[in-house]
Amino acid sequence: MTVSRGAGRFLRENSLGLAFLLGFLLTLLGQLIAGRAEMNNDLVSAQLPPVGYLAYATSSDFAVDVTENWQSEYLQNTCNA
């Protein structure tokens, strides 16, 4: 009984942070899916074998795409402020 109350209290006290974490993870998942599809289209047109999700997620292409996206959002928000 104490465990469920503790979990409920944790969720209630941290709901905003957990919601932002969920949004962040869903954004990364969307970036992963879209980026992998684009990369595989480029690879297939170059007659190379497509890559899987894990290979793309650990590639520098994924890291570059994510950081470029965050950089453009940051710069857009700071320049308009």
Score class of each variant (00 low, 15 high):
residue 28 L to G: 09
residue 57 A to Q: 00
residue 69 N to L: 15
residue 49 P to E: 14
residue 27 T to W: 11
residue 69 N to I: 05
residue 5 R to I: 11
residue 50 P to L: 07
residue 41 N to Y: 08
residue 13 E to R: 14
residue 32 L to Q: 05
residue 42 D to E: 15
residue 29 L to N: 03
residue 19 A to G: 11
residue 42 D to A: 14
residue 20 F to V: 13
residue 9 R to H: 02
residue 75 L to M: 07
residue 14 N to I: 03
residue 43 L to Y: 03
residue 43 L to T: 11
residue 38 E to N: 11
residue 28 L to K: 04
residue 48 L to Y: 05
residue 1 M to F: 15
residue 23 G to R: 00
residue 68 E to S: 03
residue 22 L to K: 09
residue 51 V to M: 11
residue 51 V to F: 01
residue 32 L to A: 15
residue 72 S to T: 11
residue 39 M to W: 03
residue 54 L to I: 11
residue 11 L to Q: 08
residue 31 Q to Y: 04
residue 37 A to Y: 04
residue 48 L to E: 14
residue 78 T to C: 06
residue 59 S to E: 04
residue 36 R to S: 06
residue 69 N to V: 02
residue 2 T to I: 09
residue 13 E to M: 04
residue 77 N to E: 03
residue 23 G to Y: 04
residue 31 Q to W: 04
residue 2 T to Y: 04
residue 75 L to N: 11
residue 31 Q to S: 14
residue 21 L to S: 03
residue 42 D to M: 08
residue 48 L to R: 15
residue 70 W to G: 01
residue 69 N to E: 06
residue 36 R to F: 01
residue 1 M to T: 10
residue 21 L to E: 09
residue 43 L to G: 10
residue 70 W to R: 00
residue 56 Y to E: 02
residue 60 S to F: 06
residue 8 G to H: 12
residue 54 L to E: 04
residue 4 S to Q: 05
residue 28 L to F: 14
residue 75 L to V: 00
residue 63 A to R: 04
residue 65 D to P: 00
residue 19 A to Q: 12
residue 43 L to Q: 07
residue 25 L to C: 07
residue 10 F to H: 05
residue 22 L to H: 13
residue 36 R to H: 10
residue 33 I to Q: 14
residue 67 T to Y: 00
residue 2 T to C: 11
residue 8 G to I: 10
residue 69 N to T: 14
residue 72 S to N: 14
residue 7 A to E: 13
residue 30 G to D: 12
residue 40 N to I: 02
residue 65 D to R: 12
residue 48 L to H: 05
residue 56 Y to K: 00
residue 56 Y to T: 01
residue 27 T to K: 06
residue 24 F to D: 07
residue 52 G to K: 09
residue 27 T to Q: 12
residue 26 L to T: 08
residue 58 T to C: 04
residue 20 F to Y: 11
residue 9 R to E: 06
residue 31 Q to N: 13
residue 10 F to L: 15
residue 5 R to G: 08
residue 4 S to A: 10
residue 68 E to F: 07
residue 47 Q to N: 13
residue 21 L to C: 01
residue 32 L to M: 07
residue 9 R to C: 06
residue 13 E to H: 07
residue 76 Q to H: 12
residue 6 G to P: 03
residue 81 A to F: 07
residue 21 L to W: 07
residue 35 G to F: 05
residue 62 F to T: 07
residue 76 Q to P: 00
residue 2 T to Q: 10
residue 80 N to E: 02
residue 2 T to P: 10
residue 8 G to N: 08
residue 16 L to D: 08
residue 45 S to C: 09
residue 37 A to C: 00
residue 12 R to C: 04
residue 47 Q to A: 14
residue 80 N to H: 06
residue 14 N to S: 09
residue 57 A to V: 02
residue 11 L to I: 13
residue 55 A to H: 05
residue 61 D to I: 09
residue 3 V to P: 02
residue 65 D to Y: 10
residue 71 Q to H: 15
residue 34 A to C: 08
residue 58 T to M: 02
residue 44 V to F: 08
